[in-house]
Amino acid sequence: MAWLNKQVLAFSLIVTLAMNGFDMLFHLLEDTAVHLGYVAVKFTVIFLTVFLIVHIMGRGKEQGIVTSITGPAIFYVYYRYASPTLDRTLFKLDENVTYLFLHAAFLGIAYYLTHSLSQREGTMSQPIFKALLASLAASTLEMGYHMTVLTPTLVSELKVFESVSYIYLVLAVTFALVLVKEAFWSSGWIHLGASMLLIGLAGGLTLWMAGWSFSLLDSVVRAILLGIAYSLTEASA
């Protein structure tokens, strides 16, 4: 399919994953409920906004600003018209209008980081941007895995976080691994698949050794998620 450009797809995915990573971490820090239904809709709307604008209008400063405003605004429209999926007397949710600006800021930062990654080849900031995006994407995938598989369910489709301190470890481990990879193997002799495998395995092993994996299968899943986050970051540049 000629219209489905791989780089556009990777760019849209990494911007969406990084934005959701920022957003979920912020909500967890301020004790707002993060649940699967809400995150899934936000992911879908933000991904479609980034993808359609990049695919039709291209990438750039103006497109980035339009994306940052359109995505959260349309998500807010959904939120106002949809029926609540969580009991608001029990859970604190981000339904306040000020979160619209916060979502726009997170999306703007994620878009800027991803766009800069492809524009500033060879500069000092590139490995840091790459590490930051990969770690945010890894933490989003990790939280998605947590919500769909690990968290005990409240009601069939409403899964809410309880303890997430290990997410910071996922962030730190991915950030450090990508930075180390960029510092020692930036010349390109190491193949993308090999670095993806190395980062995934090292990350999965670290989490297992730190006691945050429930089983061997759990470590393998985490290694795959870290590898996916890294390869998406590489593909978007």
Binding site: V45, L48, T49, L52, M57, T70, I74, V77, Y81
Partner: peptide, 11 residues
């Protein structure tokens, strides 16, 4: 569905 329609219209 309506939200996606709105998004397509805006883009």
């Amino acid at each position: 569905v309506g939200t996606i329609g709105l998004l397509v219209a805006v883009v």
